[in-house]
Structures are given as structure tokens and as C-alpha cells.
């Protein structure tokens, strides 16, 4: 297994956000985590690379357990794409992508920039390489942040609601980049309500509620024949956009 998530618990004060979450991912798989807001999806994602250290439970990447000691090296294998992009404001787009290889992977300046240009091409942003983040649209910023993740050549990319800060007309360009990565065999764990990606690119949908996984399975099953009433009700809402 590329990723093993074992019995993750997390509380904030008295509020128990995650109540024992476990699942595995094989290399090349794409999984989408869905569920009502406040249900712990993003917290779970942040627990996986210890941006939020879990209270209990273990995370294994490629068979190696992620601990406080190997945090910085393990995070290079587990890239993270944020909802609000978090590109480095003072760096040009290409420098944003190059800084990881340059500072963390021991690349020389030239090699890091070459890799950065290559990754920008992958996300269709070659022509904006010299722009600063503030000069990019939201969709471009998110694609740049995906390129930044790719430049670490990670084993796995975690996406935390990558399109929810974007206008509807900009989500398409991000989703199509994600679809492309999935088809190229990138292992991706995505918290998103983006049905397009979930249907087309996901191998499995994980449905969470109340800090637990209540249902998981291939998209055809989850979307067409959900086993749980809660899953059905939730999908109804996000697919039809009303309170049905």
C-alpha cells in the first residue's frame, strides 16, 4: 500500500472531529473524500501529513510511518494542494515551483528551473512563468500550486478542496489538470464536491459524516446505488443544488 491511514482520531477541546478513520490507497489510485461540511474531511487530510498532528492513530507512506522526527522528509513524498493556493507571494510563478527542488531536493539553480518549467508546461502555465501570484487568476494560481506540488515528484498529492475558492468558470481548468494527472497515474487523495472529477477520475469515493467513514466504494456504486440514506441525501443536494 502506498498510503495506510490507521484509526485516526482528532479532537479540538471537547469536540471530537475525527472518530477513528482508516483506509488504504494503492499506487496510482485516486480517491475523493466527500461529506457534509464540518465532518472532518479537511482535518483528516491535514492529519495525513501532520499539518494537524492526529491525537491517535498512525500514517504510513510507502511502508514508512510518518512521525514527528521524519516529518520534513516524509512531507516531500506527500504534497499538499491548498484550497486558497498559498503560493509564495514574493516569488514568480516559476520560482514558486522551483523552490522545493532547489531548497529541499538538492537541485542546482538551473536544474530546479528546468524542472519548474517542465511542470508548468504540464499544467498549461508556461506562458505565465514570470508572473507573480498576484498577477494570476485564481485558476492559474491553483494550477501553479499543483505544479509546485508536482516539482517535489511526490508519491501522493493531497488536494484540500482545490476548487472551492474559485469562480465556477475557473474550476474547469483546475479539474481538467487533475483529470490529466489521474490518468497519468498520479496517486491523489482529494477532498472535493467536484462531481466531474469524482465521476471521471476517481477510483473510489469515501463518504464521511460525523468524523467517520460511513460508506466507500467506486463512483458508479456511490453515485448510482448508495447504500446509506445519508449518502443518498447528500448527493442529491450537491448534484441538484437544492434541499431535496
Amino acid at each position: 500500500m502506498l498510503l495506510r491511514v490507521e484509526n485516526i482520531h482528532k479532537s479540538y477541546g471537547a469536540a471530537e472531529i475525527l472518530k477513528g478513520v482508516s483506509f488504504d490507497m494503492a499506487p496510482g489510485q485516486s480517491k475523493v473524500i466527500m461529506g457534509p461540511s464540518g465532518t472532518g474531511k479537511s482535518t483528516l487530510l491535514r492529519c495525513i501529513n501532520h499539518l494537524t498532528p492526529p491525537d491517535k492513530g498512525r500514517i504510513f507512506v510507502d511502508g514508512e510511518e510518518l512521525t514527528a522526527k521524519n516529518l520534513n522528509t516524509m512531507r516531500q513524498k506527500v504534497a499538499f494542494v491548498f484550497q486558497d493556493f498559498n503560493l509564495f507571494t514574493h516569488l514568480r510563478t516559476v520560482e514558486n515551483v522551483a523552490i522545493g527542488p532547489r531548497k529541499l531536493r538538492g537541485f542546482g539553480k538551473k536544474a530546479a528551473l528546468d524542472l519548474a518549467y517542465k511542470e508548468l508546461e504540464r499544467v498549461g502555465l508556461s506562458d505565465r512563468a514570470d508572473a507573480y501570484p498576484a498577477e494570476l487568476s485564481g485558476g492559474q494560481q491553483q494550477r501553479a500550486s499543483i505544479a509546485r506540488a508536482l516539482a517535489m515528484e511526490p508519491k501522493l498529492i493531497l488536494f484540500d478542496e482545490p476548487t472551492s475558492a474559485l469562480d465556477p468558470e475557473l474550476t474547469g481548468e483546475v479539474v481538467s489538470v487533475m483529470n490529466k494527472l489521474a490518468s497519468e497515474g498520479m496517486t491523489m487523495l482529494v477532498v472535493s464536491h467536484e462531481i466531474g472529477f469524482a465521476r471521471k477520475a476517481a477510483d473510489e469515493i469515501i463518504f464521511m459524516e460525523g468524523g467517520k467513514i460511513i460508506e466507500q466504494g467506486p463512483p458508479s456504486q456511490i453515485f448510482n446505488a448508495p447504500q446509506q440514506d445519508r449518502t443518498r441525501a447528500f448527493l442529491n443536494v450537491i448534484e441538484h443544488g437544492d434541499d431535496a
Binding site: 499539518l51 516531500q76 504534497a79 499538499f80 491548498f82 498559498n86 503560493l87 509564495f88 531548497k103 529541499l104
Partner: peptide
């Protein structure tokens, strides 16, 4: 957060 997530 983004710097730490990269592995810095």
C-alpha cells in the same frame, strides 16, 4: 503552512 507542507 505551505512552506512546512513542502517539507521545509
Amino acid at each position: 503552512t505551505a512552506a512546512r507542507a513542502l517539507g521545509m
